[in-house]
Write a protein that binds this DNA or RNA. Structure first.
Lengths: 143, 143
DNA sequence: CAATAAAAATATGTATACATACCATATGGG
DNA sequence: CCCATATGGTATGTATACATATTTTTATTG
């Protein structure tokens, strides 16, 4: 079997295409958010006061990676961290005004770029791909 | 739209699942190859004397990343680099005996793990997924 | 209630992933 | 032949991605 035909290789290429589309559209919109940063902002906006472990499990990352992502979001002034009163080990995370604005700006861009992520597929093929991918991810996260 | 349902997010999760399956199977087989390292070894085996840019374009990476990958393969004693006589800027890359052995050992493992990468899908669904993914990647690399 | 296990962050180390800049070399045109 | 340009590789910087270890704090259990 050729490497090019292997599933893992194809998925990596899809991810590559996806992140490039994301970066390109973000840049054109004058926003510097990466896919992870956007996902984290969205998760925090949906669950204000969530802790870092919560963010990690919401978007399926490990704690260590999320720590770095949140560091950078904090440096950009998009979020604030505070020690939880309920559990002093935990850091509660919330959007700042700037973070809310950035997310509000990013949302339509991200929604619009979805259609560019699977170039060459018809609408029904895209739907089929989405259904299959969802099935795999759902199945995998149930274990 | 929820982040979880976005194409990019799903693709990232698929890639995550894929790399985890790869790492797990490699480790169980006592091999320490990453997906990129395997792909690079395979490309070099198929094109002995290929230069680094050649490897990069074979497996769709940038020069900088491949440089690091090849550094590590060299450190492991799997490949050797030599200055090309045709073009003294270029480094020709070849497998060592150890590299050939490692690749030979890895191949059946990688072939076998393919079936674990899309858990929850039937064989026909896997084939459908593969066809759609191939279509996207092919379409995208034609530009 | 003290000992201990578990959990939240962080730190550390390794490996992608890629943009940009830089150096050495090659190549094409004048 | 000279020069502008392009190309191969490396260096640098940023951002994931994750395993493992460590610290602080919490929860559990004998």
């Amino acid at each position: 079997m050729k490497t090019h035909q292997m599933v893992g290789h194809l998925i990596r290429r899809l991810n590559q295409i996806s992140t490039q589309v994301f970066a390109k559209n973000m840049q054109e919109a004058g926003l510097g958010l990466t896919p992870v940063q956007f996902a984290a902002l969205d998760a925090i906006a949906t669950h204000p006061g969530i802790d870092q472990v919560g963010v990690a499990s919401e978007i399926a990352y490990d704690r260590a990676t999320i720590g770095g992502v949140i560091d950078r979001l904090e440096q950009k002034g998009y979020i604030v961290r505070s020690i939880s009163e309920r559990d002093r080990r935990a850091r509660e995370v919330r959007l700042t005004k700037r973070g809310q604005d950035a997310l509000k700006e990013a949302f339509p861009v991200v929604t619009a770029l979805q259609s560019q992520i699977l170039p060459g597929l018809s609408d029904s093929e895209k739907a089929e791909f989405l259904a299959l991918a969802t099935k795999v991810v759902t199945h995998s996260s149930k274990e």
